[in-house]
Structures are given as structure tokens and as C-alpha cells.
Amino acid sequence: MHSYLGYLTIGATVGGLRVGDMLVQLFFFLLLLYFVKKFAWGPLMNKMQEREEYVAGEIESAEKSRLEAEKASIEAAAQLNNVKLEAQKLIEDAKSAGMKQEQDIVESARKEADQIIQAAQADIQNEKEKAIQALQDKVASLSVLIASKVIEKEISAQDQEKLINDYIKEVGEER
């Protein structure tokens, strides 16, 4: 059977305990250990460590910002409430101020109207009195005029002459 074994075949030997092999194995393994640690596993582990720290930091900062956001939202809500209250107060103030102003305006308008009415009444009274006065004056002069007209008509030439004479006489006497 062994005579059939070809070039590419599977087999194994136990081998003796050779010092050279031991030294080679030891040397190569330690060399390999050094090189893979330096060039492969070392950088890889550093990277993993770095990522671990990065993730931890990110989680921490996320937590922090979440807390901050919560605080900010609470603050915002409080502020909103304040603003609402303030706005309500403002509206109420404005309403009451408007009401008061309205009352004031009405009041002052009424007063003014009263004054105007009073002044007008006084004027009317005044005018009335003046008119009456004027009328009385007119009546007097008119009555004199009428009387003189009437007198004029009834006096004759004879009388007139007598009158003129009398007047002249009177004037002469007075001198």
C-alpha cells in the first residue's frame, strides 16, 4: 500500500526531541508575539479602548444634554405660563382703562353739553331783555312821534302863529 503514496499526500511523523526545533519554535513564537502585538493587536486594542471611551463620553454627554433639555422645557413652560398670565392681566387692564375712559368721556361730554345749554339760556335771556328794552325805547319814541303827528294835524295856522309867538315870547322873557 505504501508504494502507492504519491508526491502530494497526507502524513505525519512523531519526530524526536530535537533541541534545534525547540529553539526555532521558541524564537519564532516570541518573534511573532512581539510583531503581532506591535503591528496588529496593539493598535486594534488601542482602537477598541478609544472607541469604548468615546462611546462612554457620548452617552454621558447625551445624558447631560437630555437633562438640560428637560430643564429648558420646564423653564419654557413656566415662562409661557407667566406670559399668558401677563397677557391676561394686560387685557383686563386695558379693558378697565377703556371702560373708565368711556365713562370719563361721557361725563365730560354731558358737562360740556350742560354748560353750553346754560350759556345758551343765558344768552337767550339776555337777548330777550335787550329786545324788551329796545322795544320799550321804540314804543316811547313812537308814541311821541304819533303824538306829534296827531298834534301837527290839529293845529291850525292861527294857532301855529300863536304858538310861534308864544315861543318867541317865552324866549324873549327868558333873556
Binding site: G11, A12, T13, V14, G15, G16, L17, R18, D21, M22, Q25, L26, F29
Partner: peptide, 14 residues
């Protein structure tokens, strides 16, 4: 060509 670990010398060295 074989497994180096199929040799007792080498495994015992390790």
C-alpha cells in the same frame, strides 16, 4: 508540509 503542531517537540516547547 504538515502541521507544526503534529510534532511533539514543538507542542511541548510551547
Amino acid at each position: 508540509w504538515k502541521s507544526p503542531t503534529a510534532d511533539a517537540t514543538l507542542t511541548l516547547t510551547l
